[in-house]
């Protein structure tokens, strides 16, 4: 990788980490567009259960109190790292030969 490519990658990672840290503090807790529509048109539908128990439901780290923004920060940082690694792996496997 060229030096200026490395520099750009480093800067973009810093920006992404800043977004991940700020998101739980800045994000609106209002329902999103789809949830809001469901609340108006079909509130019963929202009571449906998850078909699969996710590892960190609703970005709440188990053990940390509900609504603790640190929980969201950790969860989003974990997600950011996992997505980066998997996307890199997929890019590496399927890149032009």
């Amino acid at each position: 990788m060229k030096t200026n490519d490395k520099k750009l990658l480093l800067y973009s990672i810093v920006i992404v980490v800043i977004i991940a840290i700020l998101a739980p503090f800045l994000a609106s807790t209002n329902p999103d567009g789809l949830e809001s529509t469901a609340k108006k048109l079909n509130p019963e539908a929202l009571e449906s259960e998850h078909a699969f128990q996710s590892l960190i439901p609703d970005y709440e780290i188990p053990g940390l109190s509900k609504g603790n923004p640190l929980s969201g920060v950790i969860a989003i940082l974990i997600g950011v790292i996992v997505v980066f690694v998997i996307a890199y792996g997929i890019g590496y496997i399927f890149k032009k030969k």
């Binding site: 973009s12 992404v16 977004i19 950011v80 790292i81 997505v83 980066f84 690694v85 996307a87």
Partner: peptide, 12 residues
């Protein structure tokens, strides 16, 4: 990869 990570963060 960094766009993927950024999209994940900004979607939160």
């Amino acid at each position: 990869s960094v766009l993927g990570a950024g999209v994940f963060a900004i979607m939160a």
